[in-house]
Amino acid sequence: MNVFRLAGDVSHLVAIIILLLKIWRSKSCAGISGKSQVLFALVFTTRYLDLFTVFISVYNTVMKVVFLALSYATVYLIYMRFRNSYNSENDTFRVEFLLVPVIGLSFLENYAFTPLEILWTFSIFLEAVAIMPQLFMITKTGEAESITTHYLFFLGLYRALYIANWVWRYHTESFYDLIAIVSGVVQTIFFCDFFYLYFTRVLRGRGKMTLP
């Protein structure tokens, strides 16, 4: 554990809580891609199966359970509790275009051809692209509420901090995990365009982020 890793995990947690509280308080999930949230729940589910096989640390176990619980709570709020506010007509990204290549890649490129390892690899690859339905939705509607952009900012910050964590670990422990690093860099690149808009538009005090 290093400061980048801890800050990354905290950013991830903050992002998820921001989204959950936004939906809960406004009683609306307008502008939120339910598809992205289902994909994230799937990411956590397939990655954290090792909760049943190995114990790493109290921190590790608690964070995994919290991420799982919060992601399922978010999906519940979007598709059950506040489904009337869900903009399904704008959430039209074809998820199968992500799932098919990701499933294929996780069978081809993994550390061991075992069910748990393949599912872990699947979760890493899927996380890299899971935000695409949300970004697609923003592109389609041309705008995002500022609170949604804060969510995306912390989610992107989490990925950027994990890269710093890997650089740190490579230098201090000679540790590197190529699958995670490549996927993590790809995932972070998806956020670059968003980061630019976030800093140039949202932080200038406008209520919404509108695309040109």
């Binding site: 554990m1 090792d50 964070m63 550390y111 872990w120 995990d177």
Partner: peptide, 10 residues
């Protein structure tokens, strides 16, 4: 992959 090889990350 060993359990001590990266699985401590979330």
């Amino acid at each position: 992959m060993d359990d001590d090889f990266g699985k401590d990350e979330l």
